[in-house]
Amino acid sequence: MSHTLLDKLDAAKIHYSLARHRSDSVLVAVTVVGQRIEIDVFRDGHMEVSRFVGHEDVEGGAELIDTIVELGRWEAVARPGQTNAIILERGRSKDAGRMH
């Protein structure tokens, strides 16, 4: 793990959490206003950074959880005969391919 990365985050007083989802890297998850950042740090020291930018508006209440769970079920349905393929049956915009 690159201590320099953690030192930089600590010095900036940016909260982070560590997780292990892959055998070859450690995930440093950072949340700041308007962004969620995932930094995969690999054994050889290289990093892959994914940044998710968005608004922080309240989009709903408890009913939104049911919608999110239902979409998650649809996303995880494998096509018959293609066990590794993941499909999305509902919730995808035709124009931009983005979730709504």
Rank of each mutant, 00 (worst) to 15 (best):
T31L: 09
V41I: 09
G61R: 10
F52N: 03
F52V: 14
D24W: 02
R43S: 08
V53R: 06
R43D: 14
V26E: 14
R36M: 10
G34E: 01
E56S: 03
M47G: 01
A29E: 12
I68E: 07
T31R: 15
H21Q: 14
S17C: 06
S25N: 11
A29N: 11
A62Q: 10
G54P: 02
E38N: 10
V41W: 02
E56A: 09
T31D: 10
D24S: 12
T31I: 13
T31P: 00
F52K: 13
D57H: 04
T31K: 11
V30S: 07
S23T: 10
G60S: 02
E48C: 00
A29G: 06
D66K: 10
I65Q: 09
E56M: 10
F42W: 02
E56G: 07
I37A: 02
F42M: 04
D24Q: 03
G45W: 02
Q35F: 01
V58T: 04
S23P: 12
E38T: 14
D24F: 00
H46Q: 04
E56T: 10
S25D: 07
L27A: 15
H46R: 15
R20C: 07
G60A: 08
V53S: 13
S23C: 06
G54A: 02
E63C: 01
D57W: 06
S17I: 09
V30C: 03
F42I: 01
T67M: 11
E48N: 10
V49K: 11
Q35D: 09
D40Q: 09
E48L: 15
R36F: 12
H46W: 04
E59Q: 14
V49T: 08
V53C: 07
S17K: 14
R22N: 15
D44R: 02
V49P: 06
H21D: 15
R51W: 00
G54N: 04
L64W: 04
V30A: 03
I68V: 14
S25K: 09
I68Y: 08
I68W: 08
V58A: 09
G45P: 01
R51Y: 01
Q35A: 13
V41H: 03
E59M: 15
F42P: 02
R51P: 00
D57T: 12
E38I: 08
D24Y: 02
I68D: 11
D44T: 03
G34A: 06
H46S: 06
I68C: 04
H46G: 01
L27M: 13
I65D: 15
V30L: 06
R20E: 03
S17N: 13
D44A: 01
D40N: 13
G60D: 02
I39C: 08
H21N: 15
S50N: 11
I39G: 01
R36C: 12
E38H: 10
I65W: 02
D24T: 08
V30Q: 01
F52Y: 15
S25Q: 05
T67H: 10
D44I: 02
V49H: 07
S25G: 05
E38M: 04
D44K: 05
E63W: 08
T31M: 05
S50A: 09
E48M: 11
I65R: 12
G61C: 06
R20Q: 13
A19N: 10
R43G: 11
